[in-house]
Design a protein around this nucleic acid. Sequence first.
DNA 1: ATCATATACATCGAAATTTGATATAGTTCC
DNA 2: GGAACTATATCAAATTTCGATGTATATGAT
Lengths: 144, 144
Amino acid sequence: MTELDVDRLTTVIEDFNTIFIRLPGVRRLNFSALSVLHTLDRGGPLRLTDLLATEQLKQPALTSLVAKLEQDGLLERRADPTDGRASLISLTAAGAEIVSSRHAHRVGKLAHLVDQLTPDERAVLANSVDVLHRLTQISREETP
Amino acid sequence: MTELDVDRLTTVIEDFNTIFIRLPGVRRLNFSALSVLHTLDRGGPLRLTDLLATEQLKQPALTSLVAKLEQDGLLERRADPTDGRASLISLTAAGAEIVSSRHAHRVGKLAHLVDQLTPDERAVLANSVDVLHRLTQISREETP
DNA sequence: ATCATATACATCGAAATTTGATATAGTTCC
DNA sequence: GGAACTATATCAAATTTCGATGTATATGAT
Protein backbone atom coordinates (compact mmCIF):
# COMPACT_ATOMS: atom_id res chain seq x y z
CA MET A 1 0.00 0.00 0.00
CA THR A 2 1.37 3.42 -0.97
CA GLU A 3 2.31 5.74 1.85
CA LEU A 4 0.77 9.23 1.63
CA ASP A 5 3.29 12.05 1.23
CA VAL A 6 1.43 15.11 2.47
CA ASP A 7 4.14 17.51 1.38
CA ARG A 8 3.95 16.28 -2.18
CA LEU A 9 0.15 16.22 -2.10
CA THR A 10 0.19 19.85 -1.06
CA THR A 11 2.58 20.79 -3.86
CA VAL A 12 0.54 18.93 -6.45
CA ILE A 13 -2.69 20.63 -5.36
CA GLU A 14 -0.99 24.04 -5.33
CA ASP A 15 0.14 23.50 -8.91
CA PHE A 16 -3.16 22.01 -10.01
CA ASN A 17 -4.88 25.10 -8.69
CA THR A 18 -2.91 27.37 -10.96
CA ILE A 19 -4.90 25.89 -13.82
CA PHE A 20 -8.09 25.29 -11.86
CA ILE A 21 -8.62 28.70 -10.31
CA ARG A 22 -7.36 31.16 -12.87
CA LEU A 23 -10.22 31.71 -15.25
CA PRO A 24 -10.79 34.67 -17.51
CA GLY A 25 -12.40 37.47 -15.53
CA VAL A 26 -16.16 37.90 -15.52
CA ARG A 27 -17.99 41.19 -15.56
CA ARG A 28 -15.16 43.13 -13.91
CA LEU A 29 -15.50 41.05 -10.76
CA ASN A 30 -12.30 40.66 -8.85
CA PHE A 31 -11.21 37.76 -6.71
CA SER A 32 -12.84 39.09 -3.53
CA ALA A 33 -16.18 39.54 -5.24
CA LEU A 34 -16.12 36.07 -6.77
CA SER A 35 -15.21 34.56 -3.44
CA VAL A 36 -18.17 36.27 -1.77
CA LEU A 37 -20.53 35.01 -4.46
CA HIS A 38 -19.16 31.48 -4.09
CA THR A 39 -19.54 31.49 -0.32
CA LEU A 40 -23.11 32.72 -0.56
CA ASP A 41 -23.91 30.13 -3.20
CA ARG A 42 -22.81 27.40 -0.84
CA GLY A 43 -23.99 28.76 2.47
CA GLY A 44 -27.50 30.09 1.92
CA PRO A 45 -28.34 33.49 3.47
CA LEU A 46 -25.52 34.79 5.66
CA ARG A 47 -25.04 37.80 7.86
CA LEU A 48 -22.20 40.14 7.08
CA THR A 49 -20.26 38.89 10.09
CA ASP A 50 -20.51 35.28 8.98
CA LEU A 51 -19.29 36.19 5.53
CA LEU A 52 -16.45 38.04 7.18
CA ALA A 53 -15.23 34.84 8.80
CA THR A 54 -14.70 33.19 5.42
CA GLU A 55 -13.39 36.09 3.37
CA GLN A 56 -9.97 37.70 3.54
CA LEU A 57 -11.31 41.21 3.96
CA LYS A 58 -11.89 43.69 6.74
CA GLN A 59 -15.45 44.49 7.65
CA PRO A 60 -15.67 47.95 6.04
CA ALA A 61 -14.28 46.56 2.78
CA LEU A 62 -16.84 43.78 2.86
CA THR A 63 -19.65 46.24 3.58
CA SER A 64 -18.79 48.29 0.49
CA LEU A 65 -18.24 45.21 -1.64
CA VAL A 66 -21.64 43.85 -0.65
CA ALA A 67 -23.20 47.23 -1.36
CA LYS A 68 -21.67 47.24 -4.81
CA LEU A 69 -22.74 43.66 -5.57
CA GLU A 70 -26.24 44.55 -4.40
CA GLN A 71 -26.28 47.50 -6.81
CA ASP A 72 -25.15 45.16 -9.57
CA GLY A 73 -28.11 42.95 -8.74
CA LEU A 74 -25.97 39.94 -7.84
CA LEU A 75 -27.05 39.67 -4.23
CA GLU A 76 -29.78 41.05 -1.99
CA ARG A 77 -30.07 42.04 1.64
CA ARG A 78 -33.13 41.73 3.78
CA ALA A 79 -33.55 42.52 7.45
CA ASP A 80 -32.84 39.72 9.87
CA PRO A 81 -36.16 39.06 11.67
CA THR A 82 -34.28 37.78 14.73
CA ASP A 83 -31.80 40.64 15.08
CA GLY A 84 -32.54 44.22 14.17
CA ARG A 85 -28.87 45.06 13.77
CA ALA A 86 -28.14 42.44 11.18
CA SER A 87 -29.14 41.82 7.60
CA LEU A 88 -29.30 38.54 5.75
CA ILE A 89 -27.40 38.42 2.50
CA SER A 90 -28.21 35.98 -0.28
CA LEU A 91 -27.58 35.56 -3.99
CA THR A 92 -30.04 36.69 -6.62
CA ALA A 93 -30.63 34.52 -9.68
CA ALA A 94 -28.09 36.67 -11.54
CA GLY A 95 -25.50 36.11 -8.81
CA ALA A 96 -26.08 32.37 -8.80
CA GLU A 97 -25.75 32.40 -12.57
CA ILE A 98 -22.24 33.79 -12.35
CA VAL A 99 -21.15 31.14 -9.88
CA SER A 100 -22.64 28.35 -11.94
CA SER A 101 -21.18 29.62 -15.18
CA ARG A 102 -17.73 29.66 -13.64
CA HIS A 103 -18.38 26.19 -12.33
CA ALA A 104 -19.45 25.05 -15.79
CA HIS A 105 -16.29 26.54 -17.24
CA ARG A 106 -14.20 24.51 -14.81
CA VAL A 107 -16.16 21.34 -15.49
CA GLY A 108 -15.53 21.76 -19.19
CA LYS A 109 -11.84 22.35 -18.70
CA LEU A 110 -11.50 19.43 -16.32
CA ALA A 111 -13.59 17.08 -18.48
CA HIS A 112 -11.28 17.81 -21.37
CA LEU A 113 -8.22 16.92 -19.29
CA VAL A 114 -9.82 13.85 -17.73
CA ASP A 115 -10.61 12.57 -21.21
CA GLN A 116 -6.91 12.16 -21.79
CA LEU A 117 -6.39 9.93 -18.78
CA THR A 118 -6.44 6.16 -18.89
CA PRO A 119 -9.53 4.42 -17.51
CA ASP A 120 -7.45 3.32 -14.53
CA GLU A 121 -6.38 6.86 -13.78
CA ARG A 122 -9.96 8.04 -14.01
CA ALA A 123 -10.99 5.35 -11.56
CA VAL A 124 -8.33 6.48 -9.10
CA LEU A 125 -9.66 10.02 -9.36
CA ALA A 126 -13.23 8.81 -8.92
CA ASN A 127 -12.28 7.09 -5.69
CA SER A 128 -10.59 10.16 -4.32
CA VAL A 129 -13.65 12.39 -4.67
CA ASP A 130 -15.30 11.17 -1.49
CA VAL A 131 -12.06 11.36 0.46
CA LEU A 132 -11.50 14.94 -0.66
CA HIS A 133 -15.03 15.71 0.37
CA ARG A 134 -14.41 14.14 3.78
CA LEU A 135 -11.31 16.28 4.27
CA THR A 136 -13.35 19.41 3.68
CA GLN A 137 -16.03 18.25 6.08
CA ILE A 138 -13.53 17.43 8.81
CA SER A 139 -12.05 20.88 8.48
CA ARG A 140 -15.47 22.51 8.71
CA GLU A 141 -16.40 20.53 11.80
CA GLU A 142 -13.31 21.88 13.51
CA THR A 143 -13.97 25.48 12.51
CA PRO A 144 -17.73 25.87 12.80
CA MET B 1 -15.24 0.23 -11.14
CA THR B 2 -16.56 3.65 -10.10
CA GLU B 3 -17.50 6.06 -12.85
CA LEU B 4 -15.93 9.51 -12.56
CA ASP B 5 -18.40 12.36 -12.10
CA VAL B 6 -16.49 15.42 -13.28
CA ASP B 7 -19.15 17.83 -12.15
CA ARG B 8 -18.99 16.53 -8.62
CA LEU B 9 -15.19 16.40 -8.70
CA THR B 10 -15.18 20.07 -9.67
CA THR B 11 -17.54 20.99 -6.85
CA VAL B 12 -15.52 19.05 -4.32
CA ILE B 13 -12.27 20.71 -5.37
CA GLU B 14 -13.92 24.14 -5.31
CA ASP B 15 -15.04 23.53 -1.75
CA PHE B 16 -11.78 21.98 -0.69
CA ASN B 17 -10.00 25.06 -1.95
CA THR B 18 -11.94 27.32 0.38
CA ILE B 19 -9.96 25.74 3.20
CA PHE B 20 -6.79 25.13 1.22
CA ILE B 21 -6.20 28.56 -0.26
CA ARG B 22 -7.40 31.01 2.31
CA LEU B 23 -4.57 31.46 4.73
CA PRO B 24 -3.94 34.34 7.09
CA GLY B 25 -2.34 37.19 5.16
CA VAL B 26 1.43 37.61 5.10
CA ARG B 27 3.29 40.90 5.13
CA ARG B 28 0.49 42.88 3.48
CA LEU B 29 0.79 40.81 0.34
CA ASN B 30 -2.41 40.47 -1.60
CA PHE B 31 -3.51 37.61 -3.78
CA SER B 32 -1.83 38.97 -6.93
CA ALA B 33 1.49 39.36 -5.18
CA LEU B 34 1.39 35.87 -3.70
CA SER B 35 0.48 34.43 -7.07
CA VAL B 36 3.47 36.13 -8.68
CA LEU B 37 5.80 34.80 -6.00
CA HIS B 38 4.38 31.30 -6.43
CA THR B 39 4.79 31.39 -10.20
CA LEU B 40 8.38 32.57 -9.90
CA ASP B 41 9.12 29.92 -7.32
CA ARG B 42 7.99 27.23 -9.73
CA GLY B 43 9.21 28.63 -12.99
CA GLY B 44 12.72 29.90 -12.39
CA PRO B 45 13.65 33.32 -13.88
CA LEU B 46 10.89 34.71 -16.05
CA ARG B 47 10.48 37.77 -18.20
CA LEU B 48 7.65 40.13 -17.41
CA THR B 49 5.73 38.99 -20.46
CA ASP B 50 5.92 35.35 -19.44
CA LEU B 51 4.68 36.19 -15.98
CA LEU B 52 1.87 38.12 -17.62
CA ALA B 53 0.61 34.96 -19.30
CA THR B 54 0.03 33.26 -15.95
CA GLU B 55 -1.26 36.15 -13.86
CA GLN B 56 -4.66 37.80 -14.06
CA LEU B 57 -3.26 41.29 -14.43
CA LYS B 58 -2.61 43.81 -17.18
CA GLN B 59 0.97 44.66 -17.98
CA PRO B 60 1.13 48.07 -16.26
CA ALA B 61 -0.29 46.56 -13.08
CA LEU B 62 2.26 43.76 -13.18
CA THR B 63 5.11 46.20 -13.84
CA SER B 64 4.24 48.19 -10.75
CA LEU B 65 3.65 45.07 -8.67
CA VAL B 66 7.05 43.68 -9.66
CA ALA B 67 8.64 47.05 -8.87
CA LYS B 68 7.07 46.99 -5.43
CA LEU B 69 8.12 43.40 -4.74
CA GLU B 70 11.63 44.27 -5.86
CA GLN B 71 11.69 47.17 -3.39
CA ASP B 72 10.51 44.81 -0.69
CA GLY B 73 13.44 42.56 -1.53
CA LEU B 74 11.27 39.60 -2.48
CA LEU B 75 12.39 39.38 -6.09
CA GLU B 76 15.14 40.76 -8.28
CA ARG B 77 15.51 41.80 -11.89
CA ARG B 78 18.59 41.50 -14.02
CA ALA B 79 19.05 42.34 -17.68
CA ASP B 80 18.31 39.58 -20.15
CA PRO B 81 21.62 38.87 -21.95
CA THR B 82 19.72 37.69 -25.03
CA ASP B 83 17.34 40.62 -25.34
CA GLY B 84 18.14 44.19 -24.43
CA ARG B 85 14.48 45.08 -23.97
CA ALA B 86 13.71 42.40 -21.45
CA SER B 87 14.67 41.69 -17.86
CA LEU B 88 14.71 38.39 -16.06
CA ILE B 89 12.77 38.24 -12.83
CA SER B 90 13.53 35.74 -10.09
CA LEU B 91 12.85 35.28 -6.39
CA THR B 92 15.30 36.33 -3.73
CA ALA B 93 15.84 34.10 -0.71
CA ALA B 94 13.31 36.24 1.18
CA GLY B 95 10.74 35.77 -1.58
CA ALA B 96 11.28 32.03 -1.66
CA GLU B 97 10.92 31.99 2.11
CA ILE B 98 7.42 33.43 1.89
CA VAL B 99 6.33 30.84 -0.63
CA SER B 100 7.77 27.99 1.38
CA SER B 101 6.32 29.22 4.65
CA ARG B 102 2.87 29.32 3.10
CA HIS B 103 3.48 25.87 1.72
CA ALA B 104 4.53 24.66 5.17
CA HIS B 105 1.38 26.15 6.63
CA ARG B 106 -0.72 24.19 4.15
CA VAL B 107 1.21 20.99 4.77
CA GLY B 108 0.58 21.35 8.49
CA LYS B 109 -3.12 22.00 8.00
CA LEU B 110 -3.48 19.13 5.57
CA ALA B 111 -1.43 16.73 7.69
CA HIS B 112 -3.73 17.43 10.59
CA LEU B 113 -6.80 16.61 8.50
CA VAL B 114 -5.24 13.56 6.88
CA ASP B 115 -4.47 12.19 10.35
CA GLN B 116 -8.18 11.83 10.90
CA LEU B 117 -8.73 9.66 7.83
CA THR B 118 -8.73 5.89 7.89
CA PRO B 119 -5.67 4.12 6.45
CA ASP B 120 -7.78 3.11 3.45
CA GLU B 121 -8.78 6.69 2.77
CA ARG B 122 -5.18 7.81 3.04
CA ALA B 123 -4.21 5.15 0.53
CA VAL B 124 -6.84 6.37 -1.92
CA LEU B 125 -5.46 9.89 -1.58
CA ALA B 126 -1.91 8.64 -2.04
CA ASN B 127 -2.87 7.00 -5.31
CA SER B 128 -4.53 10.13 -6.61
CA VAL B 129 -1.44 12.30 -6.22
CA ASP B 130 0.19 11.12 -9.42
CA VAL B 131 -3.04 11.41 -11.37
CA LEU B 132 -3.55 14.96 -10.18
CA HIS B 133 0.00 15.71 -11.20
CA ARG B 134 -0.63 14.23 -14.64
CA LEU B 135 -3.71 16.42 -15.08
CA THR B 136 -1.62 19.51 -14.43
CA GLN B 137 1.04 18.35 -16.86
CA ILE B 138 -1.48 17.62 -19.59
CA SER B 139 -2.90 21.09 -19.21
CA ARG B 140 0.55 22.68 -19.41
CA GLU B 141 1.44 20.74 -22.54
CA GLU B 142 -1.64 22.16 -24.22
CA THR B 143 -0.93 25.75 -23.17
CA PRO B 144 2.84 26.12 -23.56
C1' DA C 1 22.46 49.06 -44.48
C1' DT C 2 17.77 51.18 -43.85
C1' DC C 3 13.38 51.76 -42.80
C1' DA C 4 8.95 49.89 -41.20
C1' DT C 5 6.88 47.24 -37.96
C1' DA C 6 6.67 44.45 -33.85
C1' DT C 7 7.92 43.51 -29.11
C1' DA C 8 9.25 44.41 -24.07
C1' DC C 9 8.64 47.21 -20.69
C1' DA C 10 7.80 51.86 -18.37
C1' DT C 11 5.13 55.96 -17.22
C1' DC C 12 1.02 58.66 -16.22
C1' DG C 13 -3.46 59.89 -14.54
C1' DA C 14 -7.96 58.11 -13.40
C1' DA C 15 -10.97 54.75 -11.37
C1' DA C 16 -11.73 51.16 -8.24
C1' DT C 17 -10.62 48.59 -3.97
C1' DT C 18 -9.09 47.98 0.65
C1' DT C 19 -7.90 49.59 5.05
C1' DG C 20 -7.94 51.78 9.84
C1' DA C 21 -10.43 54.62 12.78
C1' DT C 22 -14.60 55.73 14.29
C1' DA C 23 -19.70 56.32 14.44
C1' DT C 24 -24.42 54.54 14.93
C1' DA C 25 -27.97 51.57 16.00
C1' DG C 26 -29.73 47.44 18.09
C1' DT C 27 -29.18 43.75 21.78
C1' DT C 28 -28.21 41.50 26.20
C1' DC C 29 -27.49 41.14 30.88
C1' DC C 30 -27.58 42.82 35.41
C1' DG D 1 -32.60 51.67 32.87
C1' DG D 2 -27.74 51.67 32.04
C1' DA D 3 -23.29 49.32 30.97
C1' DA D 4 -21.19 46.45 27.85
C1' DC D 5 -21.36 44.11 23.65
C1' DT D 6 -22.48 43.20 18.71
C1' DA D 7 -23.68 44.23 13.77
C1' DT D 8 -23.11 47.25 10.41
C1' DA D 9 -22.17 51.86 8.31
C1' DT D 10 -19.29 55.88 7.17
C1' DC D 11 -15.16 58.46 5.91
C1' DA D 12 -10.55 59.67 4.55
C1' DA D 13 -6.14 57.71 3.28
C1' DA D 14 -3.43 54.19 1.10
C1' DT D 15 -3.13 50.70 -2.30
C1' DT D 16 -4.23 48.39 -6.55
C1' DT D 17 -5.55 48.20 -11.16
C1' DC D 18 -6.50 49.95 -15.60
C1' DG D 19 -6.35 52.32 -20.28
C1' DA D 20 -3.65 55.11 -23.04
C1' DT D 21 0.60 56.13 -24.47
C1' DG D 22 5.77 56.54 -24.62
C1' DT D 23 10.63 54.73 -25.23
C1' DA D 24 13.98 51.51 -26.42
C1' DT D 25 15.33 47.37 -28.59
C1' DA D 26 14.61 43.74 -32.06
C1' DT D 27 13.32 41.76 -36.52
C1' DG D 28 12.38 41.44 -41.33
C1' DA D 29 11.81 43.06 -45.96
C1' DT D 30 13.82 45.61 -49.34
